[in-house]
């Protein structure tokens, strides 16, 4: 299950949108608690930020026949790639997957070819499985695809990297920019540091070069 997040922005609505974007969820998949209403103030003076808590709602477990369909699609894809590997259905989707996801794991020998540079091949496979399944079911049903625990290892590595770098930023007061990462990996870092009191995160750059910057949370300047 994905953790809840707290987000500040100028208005309540903006904060909700920001949180949804970070979680990758739709409005009806979450429960929103308004912690603080924003005040607009005069010319930005005495204005206060709005703060909301957004909690992902538990999603119904995917239906068995849809799980079977997702598995069959992935198996077909692997077969047309001339790759002999097995597909297992994981009992539970990992924390970084969208709630209600079907989780599939590809098992076999020498599957590095399915991961690709920065996991790009795996991302393409997962994307296609999602599109193919959505077309068949006529609705969206998220599918999470991993290869021999690759994403699980990345998830843990990214969480600990995020914590280490945040600690360094907190100590030095200087921002740190991480290596470029694909979108789903940046999301893991953003979420890992969302509740951090000392730092805030931001993505900079475009496309393949997009990367995360970890910045110290500035003390509010005195007026």
């Amino acid at each position: 299950m994905m953790e809840e997040v707290e987000v500040s922005a100028k208005t309540v609505e903006e904060a909700i949108q920001l949180a949804l974007a970070k979680l990758g969820l739709d409005r009806e998949q979450v429960e929103v608690t308004v912690l603080k209403k924003g005040k607009s103030g005069f010319l930005g003076l005495r204005s206060g930020e709005a703060r909301v808590k957004v909690r992902p709602l538990p999603q119904p477990a995917p239906e068995q026949e849809n799980v079977a369909a997702a598995k069959a699609i992935l198996e077909g894809l692997l077969q047309s790639l001339s790759i002999s590997a097995g597909v297992e259905v994981s009992p539970q989707a990992p924390p970084e997957a969208h709630p209600g996801s079907i989780a599939l794991e590809i098992r076999g020998q020498d599957l590095g070819i399915l991961i690709g540079r920065r996991g790009q091949t795996l991302s393409s496979i997962q994307y296609l499985v999602n599109v193919l399944l959505a077309h068949r079911l006529k609705r969206r049903q998220p599918v999470f695809v991993d290869v021999e625990g690759y994403k699980k290892r990345r998830y843990q590595a990214l969480r600990s990297l995020a914590e280490r770098m945040a600690e360094r930023v907190r100590g030095s007061g200087q921002p740190i920019t991480l290596e470029p990462m694909p979108a789903h990996e940046r999301r893991i870092v953003h979420l890992a540091l969302m509740a951090n009191e000392a730092v805030t995160t931001q993505s900079i750059g475009e496309g393949e070069a997009r990367k995360i910057m970890i910045l110290p949370k500035m003390a509010r300047p005195r007026r």
Binding site: L77, L114, S124, Y127, L128, V131
Partner: peptide, 11 residues
């Protein structure tokens, strides 16, 4: 979709 197909074709 085209981009994902191209990635797999390359593989």
């Amino acid at each position: 979709v085209a981009q994902a197909m191209r990635t797999l074709i390359r593989v």
